[in-house]
Design a protein around this nucleic acid. Structure first.
Lengths: 222, 222
DNA sequence: GTCTATAAAGTGATAGAC
DNA sequence: GTCTATCACTTTATAGAC
């Protein structure tokens, strides 16, 4: 048997030698994908490098070459997934200031946030991060920064502008945003945090969010 | 050496034979105390029965005689500590209906709740429970029932009564209580959940809670 | 970079004596 | 009920060949 009898060949029978960088990157991604599944399912400690190994399809030594140890793998995986997750929430903020119907705009915004944040995969990720914060404080810092800089931040600016324009009376925009989020997203999120299987019909969710926005506007409308 | 040369003796030199039930109960408590420390520090999976054994001072076999296995020990320990923790929150609810100054009463109530729930040991317990909910759904159910029946429940009744008396206009008292808790306790609790070491001065905390109560009253005062 | 094989330590749980 | 000693297994991590 010739040396070219193994591995893929092209249409002329010439062996295709994969670009090592691509292969390495692909394996790295396979490791990350497998690690996410295992960490979310088992938690940090109970997730085994063996299970991640067999799920990813690469060898254990390769995982250690790429990530060093289990802690670093965990931080890389969770740290990488967080910004991606929260990026879905961002685009809506800018519409608040110019909205002709502020109430509708706030309801739409917070309802969209809620629908994303209540997704079972995001709730599981959130529970995982919270449960590991005493061991990995960096993740708490990161989550806080990501969620606040990417979401609360722009909204704070919007409320400050609405205050300047005389639409609302918001002496402390940062606190106001925290209260708005708490009174809307926070209500069903708290329920689902402790009861993942709790049934929340869409009409019920809409009622919760609408009521929260109305409460907010009752307090902050000039 | 006589048989009575070992063990404690009373003032007449007569050996004190400990009541086996007392000894057994005391060991059981020692196990629970040690398990709480280890579970809170390490999480469920990373906490080892060896560590609980050496911390408790009893043998491993005794732990297994008492609790069967690690899961049952965990559930017994956390399930036992939860109602105790929340019992501190209960007594204040009844004062709301009869309060001459409702605003002050609500501020006092929610500020007291907040001070208790932000305690580092309770925050750690909360993170532990949240992190294990996917594996131990019973704990989520229990936490929810304990916190809602013992705290929100009486407050719901109080708001329903205040609605009947014409003091407030509360069409959905259950939702109103969730919003009040979210807009007060929930705000600093969310910060501390992800940033355990975050500095929250007392003045800042009071301002947050006061603002949340004012927001609530702006929305629900008749 | 990637693999197989294995080391070294720790895991939950139990048998058997008292 | 309680102990000591131990089992059977899994864990993270690495050595050495390619």
């Amino acid at each position: 048997m010739g040396a070219d009898s193994a591995g893929p060949i092209d249409e002329f029978g010439i062996p295709i030698i994969p670009n090592p960088v691509d292969v390495s990157q692909r394996k790295r991604q396979a490791i990350i994908d497998a690690a996410i599944v295992e960490f979310l399912r088992e938690g940090y400690s109970a997730a085994s490098m063996d299970a991640i190994t067999s799920r990813s399809g690469v060898s254990k030594a390769t995982i250690y070459k790429h990530f060093g140890n289990k802690e670093r793998l965990f931080l890389a995986v969770i740290g990488g997934i967080l910004p991606t997750t929260y990026a879905d929430l961002e685009p809506w903020n800018s519409t608040i200031v110019e909205a002709v119907d502020l109430r509708s705009a706030l309801i739409t915004l917070t309802l969209d946030w809620t629908r994303i944040l209540l997704r079972p995969d995001i709730m599981s990720l959130r529970r995982l991060v919270i449960g590991e914060i005493d061991r990995f404080p960096q993740l708490g810092q990161l989550w806080y920064r990501v969620s606040y800089d990417m979401n609360n931040g722009p909204l704070i600016e919007a409320f400050a502008e609405l205050d300047r324009r005389g639409v609302l009376r918001v002496p402390d925009p940062a606190l106001a945003v925290q209260q708005l989020v708490a009174a809307t997203v926070g209500v069903p999120q708290l329920v689902r945090t402790f009861r993942p299987e709790a049934i929340l019909e869409d009409a019920e969710l809409t009622r919760m969010i609408t009521s929260g926005v109305d409460l907010f506007l009752a307090g902050y409308t000039r």
